[in-house]
Write a protein that binds this DNA or RNA. Structure first.
Length: 290
DNA sequence: CATATGTCCTGAGAGC
DNA sequence: TGCTCTCAGGACATAT
């Protein structure tokens, strides 16, 4: 489940194709339900053929491939949303059956760029600069979790009555945090996932902000988390390593590595698994459930 | 307006 | 062995 560290790893893995030209747009035949590709393939082809890959970016959990301006064109972008199981690859994919979209490239070290998606919830979208601003502007996707200031993070959420773990998943509030890293961040911050945003103190917001940076940056260093299903891979189809450094995620009933005196617990929050340490993340007395 | 829930999808694993 | 069931959680649509 690619979140910010995994998508950032994908983005960095694409750097070899900077400067390459698009020679062909490929939609492999696939027995499964086709993913969303927009606009229709004929239009897509017409607009991207021969264009150069000028810049690689990321908006939250999306990879952005910006195409160079060539005379009459604006810098259009190919925006790839991996969602649950999508991968962006320069190397051979895990299998051919789930290949969804590809670019044949020339003038660089890699001859193909693939989008592979086992569950098919992901999408590939070509957008103009104007459309990009509308679809991925600050009112649709919040500030990046690695760029947001402590003050802005707090001010965007402090009035909310939502539980902090749920709020951290809101991409309009802050972009890039998903279910796995939300649990990891709150554990490092020492904040219980059920605490309500509007009851957190300034010191706790600072702790959450610090933990966000620390967890996400370390996870990027380890090239993201490849969970038990093995789905996530970097652009060269190699597994990440951060799963070996998780403090709470997927560690229910195991001892806490920090306090050693408590056992990690799992519960369901907004239909998602939440993991936390009851010793390190106390639920304040005023927060006790009815 | 803010917040909560339902939906899409496939493959893995459990239980019989 | 093969069927049915449940679960996983990204973003978005719809409901409260």
């Amino acid at each position: 489940m690619p979140e910010l560290p995994e998508v950032e790893t994908m983005r960095r893995g694409l750097t070899p194709v900077l400067g390459s030209r698009v020679a062909e747009v490929i939609r492999p035949r696939c027995k499964l339900r086709p993913i969303e590709i927009a606009p229709r393939l004929s239009t897509f082809r017409r607009l991207v053929m021969g264009r150069t890959i000028a810049k690689l970016d990321r908006v939250g959990k999306r990879v952005v491939i910006e195409l160079g301006v060539n005379g009459k064109h604006q810098p259009d972008s190919i925006v790839i949303e991996p969602r649950m199981t999508g991968l962006v690859l320069l190397a051979e994919p895990p299998d051919r059956a789930h290949l969804r979209f590809g670019l044949r490239l020339e003038g660089g070290p890699a001859s193909e760029l693939w989008f592979w998606d086992r569950r098919g919830l992901g999408s590939v979208r070509l957008v103009s600069a104007a459309e990009f601003a509308v679809r991925y502007g600050l009112d649709r996707v919040g500030p990046d979790a690695l760029r947001i200031s402590a003050h802005e993070l707090a001010s965007r959420l402090a009035a909310s009555r939502r539980e902090i773990k749920v709020a951290l998943l809101d991409q309009r509030a802050v972009a890039g945090i998903g279910n796995l890293y939300a649990s990891e961040i709150l554990h490092l911050a020492g904040v219980h996932p059920r605490r309500r945003c509007n009851q957190l103190r300034a010191a706790e917001w600072r702790a959450i902000h610090d933990a966000t940076r620390e967890v996400l940056e370390l996870a990027i260093c380890y090239e993201g988390s490849t969970l038990g299903d093995g789905t996530y891979r970097n652009a060269l189809n190699e597994a990440g390593n951060y799963q070996n450094h998780h403090r709470v995620y997927d560690r229910a009933r195991q001892p806490c590595t920090r306090c050693a005196s408590s056992v990690i617990e799992r519960f369901v929050q907004a239909q998602r698994s939440t993991f936390y340490c009851p010793g390190c993340q106390p639920l304040g007395r005023r927060q006790v459930e009815k």
